[in-house]
């Protein structure tokens, strides 16, 4: 079993979001970078669990980004995985990125894990694109993942509930809460990660079909209108007459 786990670098969830260069670039000043939580907590940990169950399993990590993503990929390797591949490009178009990962994924991987989305661009698109490029099935928004030989049983989120689906590998699965429990890397893992192979490959030829023109911040709130706890009727009146929300 060969598993490819897609790992992305994202700003920490507590980061202040600001932009520079006339609102065309994300302001990286003072930003802490982390492994995208969905990639780290769920897809990576689940892949590691599968390897713990069956030591013959090979787990490779892949990331798309410049040299500045290496600390993140080392951190991911500290949790587990045999080796990592970094595709050396800064392009942010999802089609271009998916084409890069698909080029790797076609190299004999049975299973490709992605997070449900990255917490910066929230596209939820890369997994589906990779699957289409591989001509493989895609199960999105998984909350549970079990492997029985070469068939996977996946529970996925649907509106107002969940669905259990079976799929023969190879397949692409996007993971979210429920698939695994977050782990903290231990010292042994951190030491081991230092010497694990981190291959850098140059991107394959692919088109970028979108480009970010500019960023904007949402308009600021006017400020909270406080109502006394003894006058709940007033709140209902405001919600009904002023906000027209009920």
């Amino acid at each position: 079993m060969k598993i490819l786990v897609c790992v992305s670098k994202t700003p920490d969830t507590t980061s202040k979001i600001a932009f520079t260069d006339g609102n065309t670039k994300f302001d990286e000043n003072g930003v802490q970078w982390i492994i995208n939580p969905y990639d780290e907590w769920y897809s990576l940990v689940r892949a590691i669990e599968l390897k713990e169950k069956d030591p013959a399993t090979i787990v490779h990590l892949v990331t798309v980004g410049g040299a500045d993503t290496e600390p993140i990929i080392r951190k991911a390797l500290a949790l587990g995985g045999d080796e990592a591949i970094r595709i050396n490009t800064d392009n942010s178009d999802s089609y271009y990125i998916a084409a890069q990962i698909a080029a790797i994924a076609k190299d004999g991987y049975d299973l490709v894990f992605t997070g449900k989305e990255t917490i910066d661009y929230n596209g939820s698109s890369i997994g589906g694109m990779i699957a289409e490029m591989m001509d493989a099935p895609y199960i999105s928004l998984a909350t549970k993942f079990e492997l029985n030989g070469t068939t996977a049983t996946v529970t996925r989120e649907i509106e107002g509930g969940e669905e259990i689906a079976e799929v023969a590998l190879p397949a692409v699965v996007s993971c979210q809460k429920g698939v695994a429990e977050q782990r903290i890397p231990n010292m042994r893992g951190i030491m081991a990660a230092r010497t694990k192979p981190l291959k850098v490959v140059e991107p394959v030829a692919a088109d970028a079909l979108t480009a970010i023109v500019s960023f904007e911040m949402p308009p600021a709130k006017a400020g909270v209108k406080l109502v006394s706890p003894d006058n709940v009727a007033e709140l209902v009146k405001l919600l009904h007459e002023e906000a027209k929300a009920i």
Binding site: I17, D120, L209, T210, I212, F215
Partner: peptide, 16 residues
């Protein structure tokens, strides 16, 4: 589109 989980917006040009 919304980015950074709703903390900001990005204006994205589609060129295809």
């Amino acid at each position: 589109k919304t980015v950074f989980s709703g903390k900001a917006f990005a204006n994205v040009s589609i060129t295809s």
